[in-house]
Design a protein around this nucleic acid. Sequence first.
DNA 1: CTGAAAGCGCTAACAT
DNA 2: ATGTTAGCGCTTTCAG
Lengths: 328, 328
Amino acid sequence: MVDVAAHAGVSLKTVSRAINSEPHVDPVLAARVAASAEVLGYHRNSLAASLRSGARDTIGFLSADLSNSFYSHIAAAASAVAVEHGMQLIVASSEEDANAEKALALDFCQRRVGGLIVVPTASDHSYLATEMERGTPSVFVDRPAHGIDADQVLLDNRGGAYAAVKELLSAGHERIALLFDSLDIYTMAERRAGACAAFADAGRALDPRLTVSGLHTPEAARAAMERILAHEPAPTAVFCANNRVTIGVLEQLLPLRSDIALSCFDDFELSRVLPRAIRIVDYDTAELGRRATKMLIERIATDASAKSSTELLPTRLITRGGTSTPGG
Amino acid sequence: MVDVAAHAGVSLKTVSRAINSEPHVDPVLAARVAASAEVLGYHRNSLAASLRSGARDTIGFLSADLSNSFYSHIAAAASAVAVEHGMQLIVASSEEDANAEKALALDFCQRRVGGLIVVPTASDHSYLATEMERGTPSVFVDRPAHGIDADQVLLDNRGGAYAAVKELLSAGHERIALLFDSLDIYTMAERRAGACAAFADAGRALDPRLTVSGLHTPEAARAAMERILAHEPAPTAVFCANNRVTIGVLEQLLPLRSDIALSCFDDFELSRVLPRAIRIVDYDTAELGRRATKMLIERIATDASAKSSTELLPTRLITRGGTSTPGG
DNA sequence: CTGAAAGCGCTAACAT
DNA sequence: ATGTTAGCGCTTTCAG
């Protein structure tokens, strides 16, 4: 930069102003600076710039599992919004490890990110309180924060499950199987609560023999479905609480050409191609990332003192597969 | 940091050494420094550190389309390798826009990234030559670089297509339809070349009425398949050159309960659940990202002068769907 | 509208 | 093993 200043015959500060296209710079000088920069192959060092100015133009995105396409979609949407606002997204994945999450979050803070978007794993996030006070706000996505008061963007898990199960009940289904992943997972507990509420509103209770949780893989879900079909009078409907469960259940039911009604949380690739119809609790994944990023940028811009808020993204029931959405 | 030094009663440099846990530091002093840092709530500023030391501990990942799960898987794998090596990944998506790609790449360079991993869109990458000379190496993933000599990690598109089509020919199929996306896309041209080679080796020529390209969406592929079935004697086998084509073809064929043999490039979610068997040219997506990151880190570590290399990742033929992989 | 000086937080290169 | 001094590349005062 000093070289550019010398070459252009102006002061360092003028180069700085010209490079950043600040107002009140003589266009002639600005042009001369630009020319000199070009000749000398000058490249601005934005690290050095932000060191002195304290500007924070990058956002840290900390996912529990980036190779899960659900979260990578969120990250992609977040990145787009960040770039739109002249910021960049740094991403890292904690691989569902609470210690890794903490280490990565702190590393992001050392890099002086403007803020953190976290898909949390760790049960305790109080270590972020210090960072927030020091000027690094966080927003939590998909799962709530614990031990700390922060902005959040969550899905309406409870409402979505409620709507799906209520629909099955209204259709007159007497025997409804409910299949969940581990109830330790926040989203699962919420979805179960929604299902329970629908049953309660219909004046009915869950059938414990048709309600299974802890199904962590498609294979576990498939086996659970097989067991239910073998030992009980067949259910007339099944509610699958996430897409892994759905896939397992489909593996079991499709070959049987079963006409058991299916209602499932989470859409998935190829759901349209299914040879049978299926109801899906759908939502806008990218919107989770967009909303979180906007909230964070908003919080960075205004003062951190504002009360933290939680946004609940709506879900909707759609039909997929069968002949219902030809070519869709 | 000066405060910490004062509090601990040592010099600035000792604090620096202690914080970075350099060797040759009195453990007693180190402990005192750590304690003071804790008390004062000191956080290292890694931006300032790398400004002075010139260290470059972040990698820029520039994807053509991050919301495409294929690329986000690559990014996730790259991030994991980067973190393993004490670096972080910054990601951005050019959204298949050559200008955006250039702007983002240059922005990464301004941030003094250690190197760039690029899933290219732009046809011309000569603008990166300057950056490479100035010490920012690039490696290209999935698609080759143009107008510049750089490291690359590509799929064996040609070999995979060759194997798939050869298998169909060996099985005695007389009428094989070949469906491609636009041949302007590098991977498509390669896959077509592989298919042609298989035909040539069998002493046969492609049937132009059964060979369609430019199928950019599942719907276009579905319509193409419909047209072929309507106007020609039905093919006994179809080769789909990517997963969007495959989905479109499945939308057309599944409702018909057709037993036309299917051989498709790219695996996809739910392929196992298909009610019919399908041959798939499969590969390790994450490995693309891992290899690229390792190549880049290697190149950063050694001198940039080494000859650039191209790695070709192998593909393999697998069977999915039907009853062939129960529960798999 | 332009410039000179000071300094962001840290580390490299010497001392000691 | 520890301290001193200079300076990374830029921006921010504050003067002109």
